[in-house]
Design a protein around this nucleic acid. Structure first.
Lengths: 174, 174
DNA sequence: CCAAAAATCACCCGAAAGGGTGACGACATC
DNA sequence: GATGTCGTCACCCTTTCGGGTGATTTTTGG
């Protein structure tokens, strides 16, 4: 947490320096102050938003409420069905999924798959590339790759499609 | 979510206006540009951080862990099963699927996906690499890649995982 | 507070995947 | 015979993936 303030100040100083430098070289020709202010505003807004997202990312109060749903299922069709989940991660797809999905946490634990890894796996299953996943989760692509490698190893998969297949078989993915 | 962008732009304009106004009246005396930029930077950083906090506040995940308790009732559900296919391609997986799967041929035709392409797609979905698929179907790897490219194009997918996801959504894959 | 676990990131390298183009033969249809 | 579709294959090039290694930081549990 302390590091964020540091890089904030640092990047701020650097940005100001750069802006002032460029301002004195190029932009100053005519629309000096207005454009300058707008530039600084935009850049620092983006930076602030990014920082806000980043420092609150893990502040997701994981208020884990366990909701037990009893569902009556015809014995021949053991399809999981239950309430619609609030979490967009498990939300309905374009083809209105009528059954909410709950990952098999027992299996997940026996395999030693962490929550983060499962999160990455679900995004992999949705067809995102590592880069897209990285930008969605505000982490680097290398991190995504690391998680991928770990979860592939735990699932005994060599490819992401295989990992997705295994995940679905094991009840980890919808 | 859209409201935030609006108030963002609005507040941005107002802030810029205020700053420009004040800048021309008070601060301009001596430290014009530097102080001006710093002010804008600080204000907009704070604003960005605030905005980041706000738009992530709703994501304060009240992560309901939905535990689905399946209560089996005596089977009175006649399986709405399609014809059992002879092709082992659609056979039961490791997690004994009780309902046979029949691909949505209508959708398949509207998308212009040929049988061969769908065949390759199912193998892709099972986690096989292009090489493995090639050896299974007794064709060259290049051919598999060609089919893959075609079906990816028809599904609007850029990656195989994405193609698999789309295929499942569209009822082309089990 | 400390130790373990988890998450993050970087770098390298080889393999796999994907895009594009062109081509050829089989087969059906008109 | 001309046309069109489909399946097959090759080549080149770029991007993405996956494996391996090592490191730091954050979180968590005791």
């Amino acid at each position: 947490m302390k590091r964020h303030v540091l890089i904030f100040g640092l990047a701020g100083g650097i940005l100001i320096a750069i802006l002032q430098y460029t301002e004195y070289r190029f932009v100053v020709i005519e629309h000096s102050v207005e454009l300058y202010g707008a530039l600084v505003a935009i850049l620092f807004s983006a930076f602030g938003i990014w920082l806000g997202l980043r420092i609150t990312r893990n502040r997701e109060t994981i208020r884990e409420t366990v909701v037990v749903k009893e569902v009556f299922v015809p014995a021949e069709a053991p399809e999981r069905s239950g309430a619609e989940s609030k979490d967009p991660l498990w939300g309905s797809g374009p083809k209105a999924r009528h059954a909410a999905f709950a990952p098999d946490t027992a299996r997940q634990q026996t395999l030693g798959i962490t929550a983060r890894e499962l999160e990455i796996l679900t995004l992999v299953a949705r067809g995102f590339s590592n880069r897209e996943i990285a930008s969605q989760l505000f982490v680097s692509e290398n991190t995504v790759k690391t998680h991928c490698g770990r979860v592939f190893d735990k699932l005994g998969a060599a490819r992401r499609t295989q990992a997705v297949q295994r995940g679905k078989e094991l009840g980890l993915l919808p």
